[in-house]
């Protein structure tokens, strides 16, 4: 590991430490460091966190995904519709993931077969998936039937009081942690992961080395779609409703988490665990701002500032090297 990559790995940790310290010392943020608050924050990280797992692969490969928010909304609606048709929670989850994955595959095909730049292709998907969500829901929130909520166990997925209690976190949080660990290992150690990094670092070199660029990219965007689909399921579980207008603008939070987590938008650099810390930091920031009664604009300005500072520190450090 070079000194640069160590600093890069430290970036989200430093950010997180600053946020925690500031609010821990803040007189009005009582109970900020409590276990209870930590559970809530962890739960609030799940949606952005899951989406950020997929987005890390995309950004490390040198791409970008603007369609995450729309895909999450679409999947949450699909999930609610499946539950309303009384197919059970498991099938609802599978359908949500599948819907997300389909969107991801289409993203991948647009980027590789039609050779549309990722920014534009996923900008298109941002509109298409959002529109599709409104279409299949009849532009209304889709309520989940009470039977699925309680006995079906949908609510349990994102409950702050997990059953059994020794679980501490909700199953949604555990799912995110587990997936993040697996994804981090895949990105670092698998052939696929190294190929993803190589494509992001230098696509021409990757092609020269005989890496199947198209296939790999389609896989990357499908995985990201599936992650967003799962996030849509978790959203449905938390809100107990499939909302076609939910998760608006969340793609920017996701990108911010990945960038704060140490990834470079130029590709080739970044890690899943860093992204998770980035997502966690933003959730703590939101929680702290709410506790101290700051207006939302304070939170928005802070997040914006953190992104700019985090990235410029990296740029400055690189220039000196």
């Amino acid at each position: 590991m070079t000194s640069g990559s160590i600093l890069r790995a430290l970036r989200p940790c430093i950010g997180l430490a600053i946020v925690l310290t500031v609010f821990a010392l803040h007189p009005q943020a009582e109970g900020f460091l409590s276990v209870y608050n930590f559970k809530i924050v962890a739960n609030q990280t799940v949606i952005v966190g899951l989406a950020a797992i997929g987005a890390t692969f995309i950004i490390v490969s040198g791409g970008i995904d603007l369609s995450v928010g729309s895909i999450i909304a679409l999947s949450s609606v699909v999930c609610a519709l499946v539950l309303r048709a009384e197919y059970g929670v498991t099938l609802a989850m599978v359908s949500a993931i599948f819907a997300g994955c389909v969107c991801g595959v289409i993203n991948g095909l647009m980027i590789t077969m039609l050779r549309i730049a990722p920014f534009v292709a996923t900008l298109g998907m941002l509109g298409i998936a959002r529109g599709a969500a409104k279409w299949i829901s009849g532009e209304q929130k889709v309520d989940v039937p009470p039977a699925a909520l309680e006995s079906g166990g949908l609510q349990a997925w994102m409950s702050n009081r997990p059953d059994p209690e020794w679980l501490w976190f909700s199953p949604g949080v555990w799912t995110t942690i587990l997936l993040a660990l697996i994804a981090a290992y895949v990105l670092r150690r698998s052939v696929f992961g190294v190929h993803v990094t190589a494509i992001g670092s230098n696509e021409k070199t990757a092609r020269l080395c005989g890496i199947r660029i198209e296939r790999t990219k389609i896989a990357i965007y499908s995985i990201a779609g599936a992650c967003a689909g799962l996030a849509g399921f978790m959203l449905c579980a938390r809100l107990t409703v499939g909302n076609p207008t939910a998760a608006l603008g969340i793609e920017l939070d996701v990108i911010a988490a990945v960038v704060i987590g140490g990834a470079s938008l130029a590709g080739g650099q970044g890690g899943v665990l860093g992204s998770m810390l980035g997502a966690l930091m933003m959730a703590f920031l939101a929680s702290g701002c709410k506790m101290t009664g700051s207006a939302t604009y304070v939170q928005e300005i802070l997040i914006g500032t953190i992104i700019v500072v985090a990235v410029s520190v990296d740029v400055l450090q690189r220039r000196r090297a």
Binding site: S190, V191, V194, T205, L208
Partner: peptide
Amino acid sequence: DEGLALDLTIAQNITLSGLERHA
């Protein structure tokens, strides 16, 4: 521009095209 992935290590660059063999 085309030949090396500068972010990757020496080992990764050398083995990039035949990584499957080591997996």
